[in-house]
């Protein structure tokens, strides 16, 4: 009986803790977003964050997208052959990439790269008192450090996903023409025939949300890290893990919203 009560109590404590954490993250996000729209602005910091999240993630995202497109073409060739529907490969690849895999995989890659880097940088600034120093120099750290990163995350990831969409289709094209014997012209026509604006747009909206989430988790965990090098290390891990989970959870929610339409 006691054991049971202990277990229930533990579950309750865990639930309360999680709820409190969600509340704290939400308040943090609201504060950060409200700082984006109120002056002073820090265009330099936005530019730096855009370069870090977008530009420097390009190679990783590009490679991921190409290989994903290639593997999709190959796998769907096997699957669709069973229904004699090989001609659908092109549309399967482009729909999977634009609606789903482009934003999700780019999001996960950027979480591992830029999200981790943000958490490490802000975490180091926290434990070396640099964030406190900002406050003593009349600078709101939420505005100077967090807001530019949130904004840059929401802008940079859709741009990356545009690139990922194109390279994903290219990957499929390479396999289809070189390995599966498709005519390149026919493959591209098939690709565009079944593609609707909404497929691309829904993917880009997802990307904006994922980019914001990656930046939010990077900033939140870094900003609130404590306890020296070890604290910064666990903040970095927490940033990547929580951003990855949130990306997959929000992916479902957003898909549901777009699906109903």
């Amino acid at each position: 009986m006691d054991r049971l009560l202990d277990a229930i109590a533990a579950i309750g404590r865990g639930t309360l803790g999680a709820a409190r954490m969600c509340g704290r993250i939400t308040l943090f996000a609201l504060d950060g977003v409200s700082q984006i729209v109120r002056p002073p602005f820090y265009p330099r910091m936005v530019g730096r964050a855009l370069a870090e999240i977008g530009y420097f993630s390009l190679p990783v995202v590009a490679l991921t997208a190409i290989f994903t497109g290639m593997v999709l073409a190959l796998q769907s060739a096997t699957g669709l052959a069973r229904f004699s529907a090989e001609s659908q490969i092109a549309s399967l690849v482009v729909l999977s990439v634009t609606r789903e895999l482009g934003p999700v995989l780019a999001g996960l890659m950027v979480a591992g790269r830029a999200g981790a880097a943000m958490a490490a940088e802000l975490g180091t600034m926290r434990v070396t008192d640099q964030i406190d120093a900002l406050t003593t120099l009349s600078t709101n750290p939420m505005k100077y450090l967090v807001a530019p990163r949130l904004l840059a995350g929401a802008i940079a990831l859709p741009l990356l996903v545009v690139v990922a969409d194109i390279l994903g289709v290219l990957g499929g094209y390479i396999i289809a023409t070189l390995k599966l014997g498709f005519n390149g012209h026919v493959y591209l026509n098939n690709t565009l025939d079944f593609l609707e604006t909404q497929d691309v747009v829904s993917g880009l909206v997802k990307a904006a949300v994922f980019g914001f989430l990656v930046a939010l988790m990077g900033c939140y965990n870094g900003y609130n890290s404590k306890g020296g090098a070890q604290g910064v290390g666990s903040a970095t891990t927490a940033a990547v893990v929580s951003a990855s989970i949130l990306i997959l959870a929000f992916d479902y929610v957003l898909t549901e919203i777009f699906f109903i339409r």
Binding site: D129, Q130, T136, S138
Partner: peptide, 16 residues
């Protein structure tokens, strides 16, 4: 607070 200045224990210089 803007009328105050602080030298932090380990400098806390912005390394970026």
């Amino acid at each position: 607070v803007a009328t105050m200045g602080m030298l932090f224990q380990n400098g806390a210089l912005f390394d970026s």
